[in-house]
Simulated scan of single mutants.
Amino acid sequence: MNAVIPREQAVRDLYAAYLADRKDIAGAMLTEDFTFSSPRDDHIDRAAYFERCWPKDPLFRAIYIEFLAVNGDEAVVRYRAEKLDGTSFANMESLRFRGDRIAAVEVYFGRNL
């Protein structure tokens, strides 16, 4: 029987998968009807999410989770990301779970650092 991963760890695992360029790991963490929203994307489906939001080549040097809170089926995370080109930015995201998988992510863009 598979152990249920605590939601805080699932959020950390999702960002680790992004940093490691592991779409396969991230894909297994998302529901089939997953949606992604940001100031640039309005409830796009998982296929569009992987096309638009996962770069073809590695983009990030590091992602630092600065704040993470989980309440029931929702998590909120603030992070700082360092890109390989030397630039960095900060964002906040809301993640909603259904069962043990992530059903939706909403990104709120922060500032360039």
Rank of each mutant, 00 (worst) to 15 (best):
E82V: 03
V77K: 03
I5H: 00
T87A: 09
D85P: 04
S38W: 03
N2H: 12
H43L: 14
G27P: 09
I44W: 11
L95E: 05
E106I: 07
C53R: 14
T87H: 11
F89N: 00
I63C: 04
Q9E: 13
I63F: 02
L95C: 03
A26R: 07
A28I: 00
R22E: 13
L30M: 15
N2I: 11
S37F: 07
S37A: 03
P58G: 00
N91F: 04
D24Q: 10
N91P: 09
Y79W: 15
W54G: 05
F89V: 01
Y15N: 07
S94W: 10
D45W: 06
E93P: 04
G99K: 07
R78W: 12
Y49V: 03
M1I: 01
G86H: 10
F67T: 06
A103F: 04
K56G: 09
E66H: 05
V77L: 05
Y49N: 07
N91Y: 00
P6V: 05
P39Q: 05
T31V: 08
R96L: 08
A69S: 08
A75M: 01
R7K: 12
I63L: 09
K56S: 09
E51D: 13
L113F: 09
L113R: 05
P39I: 00
D85E: 01
H43W: 09
D85S: 00
Y79C: 02
R78V: 14
G72Q: 08
A62S: 14
A16I: 06
L19T: 07
L68F: 11
A62P: 04
A62L: 12
F34H: 05
D21L: 05
G99F: 00
V77M: 05
T87Y: 08
G72W: 02
Q9K: 00
S94L: 15
L30G: 06
R111I: 03
N91T: 01
F109C: 02
D45P: 10
Y64K: 13
A47V: 10
A75D: 01
P58Q: 02
R98C: 12
D24P: 10
R78C: 14
A104F: 01
D33Q: 15
R12G: 03
P6R: 00
A104M: 02
V105D: 01
Q9I: 01
M29T: 08
